[in-house]
Amino acid sequence: MIGYPKRMPTLWRWDGEDEKHITLIVQKTMSVQLLNPTAAYIYYCCDGEKTLDDIIELFLKKYNVEKGRITQDVKEFLNFLISIGAVCYEHNGHSVNKLT
């Protein structure tokens, strides 16, 4: 499935001593969330221009881990971001609630 995960409009910033974490407001729950560096990078990649496969490729270059594992982890976290309304995922102009 080709789709484009995209961050929902909200206040967010790079954070932490090395600015690799991200803090953001989740509008749906009106809470502030802290993302660890890996999660932050996934969130950052959700720019509406990269596909899910693009993001997985970026992680494959970054980490020496088997593709299936990375795909599963990225999808799982994206599903979480979608469920809390931090990211939306569009496929052929339709929003998708869950990546399978």
């Binding site: 009106m30 809470s31 502030v32 969330q33 802290l34 660890n36």
Partner: peptide, 10 residues
Amino acid sequence: MLELMPDVFS
């Protein structure tokens, strides 16, 4: 992911 403040507007 860590929820820092359960209620931003507390």
